[in-house]
């Protein structure tokens, strides 16, 4: 008698979803990697040493997984949060005190901290194994940009709770932009950018203003950072991640001694 699971796996619905039989024998374990969308990122077979935990530390994968965690918890948080001076702080307060599943924000925040750390550890491992060397030079460069995007994601997200911790950390961090050479209101060389004695670089037109959308961290900044945090940077990061993973395959797979 066929068991229930066999009946399910033989059904037309199941077969239409999964393009391959269960990967229980060697042939189907190869086929599954080639025919499943989520798995085709991987090669069919891989150097045994290359996936040893003591070698890779799994940190790149962990970082990607944390990005997914951040995406899911982030979308759920967006249901409860309005990026306006009136509501931002109160929505976070309500999220803690009123909303059920009260660890959503914790998951998102601790996941973000963890992601910054795992990105660093991933870079550390890639450097220490010399895996950036040819032919993987360009993938290292993409990795550095992804590292920067991770920091920017965390930085823009830091403002959203709109408490004292948030606005002052962003104020301190973004004050640096005020001192950008040539383009900052208090940076060296900004006096050179003037037309007929009228300064082009003022506190309402300099690099910091571009970042904050205002002369100080205010409602415009909150909106700007919200859009950057929820839409612009994640999209850019997702695109670069796709290239990053694709290049791993194209550049000779997971690194190992030549």
């Amino acid at each position: 008698m066929a068991s229930l699971s066999e009946i399910i796996r033989e059904s037309q619905i199941w077969k239409s979803i999964f393009r391959h039989p269960m990967p229980v024998d060697r042939r189907n374990r190869v086929v599954v990697m080639l025919t499943n969308f989520f798995l085709h990122l991987h090669p069919v077979s891989i150097k045994k040493q290359g996936i040893a935990l003591s070698f890779t530390w799994c940190m790149g994968g962990v970082t990607f997984f944390l990005f997914l965690v951040e995406t899911i918890t982030g979308v759920l948080l967006m249901f409860y949060y309005r990026p306006t001076l009136e509501w931002a702080f109160n929505d976070i307060l309500a999220l803690r005190d009123v909303t059920s599943m009260g660890i959503l924000r914790e998951l998102h925040r601790w996941g973000a901290h963890a992601m910054v750390i795992t990105v660093w550890l991933h870079m550390y491992r890639v450097f220490l194994t010399g895996s950036y060397k040819p032919p993987r030079e360009f993938n290292w460069v993409i990795g550095v940009v992804l590292l920067l995007l991770t920091l920017l994601l965390s930085f823009t997200g830091y403002l959203l709770p709109w408490d004292q911790l948030a606005i002052w950390a962003i104020t301190v961090g973004s004050n640096m932009a005020r001192a950008t050479p040539f383009l900052g209101y208090e940076g060296p060389g900004n006096q050179l950018l003037n037309i007929d004695g009228i300064d082009m670089i003022t506190n309402a037109s300099d690099a910091r203003f571009g970042l904050l959308g205002a002369r100080f961290v205010g409602e415009e900044t909150l909106n700007r950072f919200y859009v950057l945090h929820c839409v612009a940077i994640p999209l850019a990061a997702a695109l670069l991640m796709a290239i990053h993973f694709w290049r791993i395959r194209k550049d000779g797979g997971i690194s190992g001694p030549l």
């Binding site: 374990r29 990697m33 991987h42 891989i46 040493q49 994968g61």
Partner: peptide, 21 residues
């Protein structure tokens, strides 16, 4: 790292490591 040149199938060796992680 060079001692073990053997190749293994990604399913199950890597896929399950990822799942456990």
């Amino acid at each position: 790292e060079k001692l073990d040149d053997e190749k293994v199938l990604v399913w199950p060796d890597l896929v399950y490591t990822e799942l456990i992680c």
